[in-house]
């Protein structure tokens, strides 16, 4: 758990130190990609807790999720339905909370806080 927190801190520090920015037009893409990445990470933790973690599936899932999310935004921009990104946001948002619940339960079991 600590390792993951440190990894997150490392990533944030790297991003802030390099102070990279993206063009404003791409901000929606980035937001949805961030959401997809959060979802993937929580999904990965959940799988690890459930002893079903698979490196290949995880990494592949991370990239397909992120790219698909960006693709949906792109399609929305192209066909003039800007709000299409909401579909990705809602879907990933629900999955995030779903995964979060599972991760929480898994962690509680590991730490013996439950039953």
């Amino acid at each position: 758990m600590l390792v993951l927190a440190l990894a997150l801190a490392l990533g944030v520090t790297l991003g802030l130190l390099t102070s990279i920015t993206v063009p404003v037009a791409l901000l929606t893409y980035l937001g949805v990609a961030v959401l997809a990445a959060i979802d993937s990470c929580l999904g990965g933790m959940r799988a690890a807790l459930e002893q079903t973690f698979d490196d290949k599936a995880f990494v592949f899932g991370f990239f397909t999720n992120t790219l698909m999310a960006a693709f949906i935004v792109f399609i929305g921009d192209r066909i003039g339905v800007r709000e299409l990104y909401l579909a990705a946001v809602v879907a990933f948002g629900m999955r995030v909370f779903d995964n979060l619940g599972q991760v929480r339960r898994g962690l509680f079991q590991r730490w013996g806080w439950e039953r």
Partner: peptide, 15 residues
């Protein structure tokens, strides 16, 4: 992947 996630968050925060 968590490092990448942190990076993405920081970049969008910067922007």
């Amino acid at each position: 992947v968590v490092v990448v996630l942190g990076f993405l968050v920081a970049v969008s925060f910067n922007t």
